[in-house]
């Protein structure tokens, strides 16, 4: 997870910075290039960089928010479309991911303003398997997924912000409008529930085997 984050940072900084310097040079050297068009190209490139670097995390965050692949895709579409429209307001490259998450959370809230969807039963949802996991690991992962899904939303979201978003306790508190102690308690309970679920299942299996 830490590695992923660093990769994002490298990708996005590399993609953002050279683009802007390139554009500057282009404008300076070739007068016939309209600055407006260069500006639009640069915006396009920045947007593509943003999509490339963050669409996976944003999709995963959306997926765990709504438990539905189709709705998650719609949410991601809406999120990136809004991001495109207000791309100029994104000044700090390092804030790009949390900016997108903020947009995503707002879009998700709007979804509930429009319509309350039925909750999906996890047993009906075909969850994707990561390749190259042995049977036991796969089972364990399915179990964790099921239990993440069963977490109450107020426990699940701090966990998503921490693990997918890479937020610190303070940042989660700020994003959710809670105080830090509450956030840490919720993170503790969320993970503790997952931990216990795993331990129970292992106990059960041992008993079953014995």
């Amino acid at each position: 997870m830490v590695k992923d984050l660093e990769l994002d940072q490298i990708l996005i900084t590399q993609w953002f910075v050279p683009v802007s310097t390139m554009e500057l040079k282009k404008v300076r050297n070739k007068k016939q290039h309209s600055p407006v068009i260069s500006d639009m190209n640069s915006k396009q490139q920045r947007y593509e960089a943003l999509v490339g670097a963050f669409h996976k995390d944003i999709y995963r965050y959306a997926y765990w928010l709504c438990s539905d692949q189709a709705i998650a895709q719609d949410l991601v579409q809406e999120t990136f479309l809004r991001a495109w429209k207000s791309l100029d307001s994104l000044k700090d490259v390092n804030a790009a991911k949390s900016w997108l998450i903020t947009i995503l959370r707002r879009e998700n809230a709007r979804r509930f303003e429009r319509k309350q969807f039925d909750l999906v039963d996890m047993d009906d949802v075909p969850l994707a398997d990561n390749d190259s996991l042995d049977a036991e690991a796969t089972m364990e992962q399915q179990l964790i997924r099921r239990h993440i899904q069963m977490l109450a939303p107020e426990y699940r979201e701090p966990l998503l912000l921490q693990v997918i978003g890479g937020y610190s306790g303070e940042e989660i508190a700020e994003a959710l409008g809670l105080n830090k102690n509450t956030v840490m308690t919720r993170l503790f309970r969320a993970r503790n529930q997952l931990k216990e679920a795993l331990e129970n299942s292992m106990d059960n299996r041992r008993q079953g085997n014995g």
Partner: peptide, 15 residues
């Protein structure tokens, strides 16, 4: 280790 498992579990496949 648990957190890595959680992170891996959260990493659902992206279309």
């Amino acid at each position: 280790a648990l957190d890595d498992k959680i992170a891996a579990a959260l990493n659902v496949d992206v279309p």
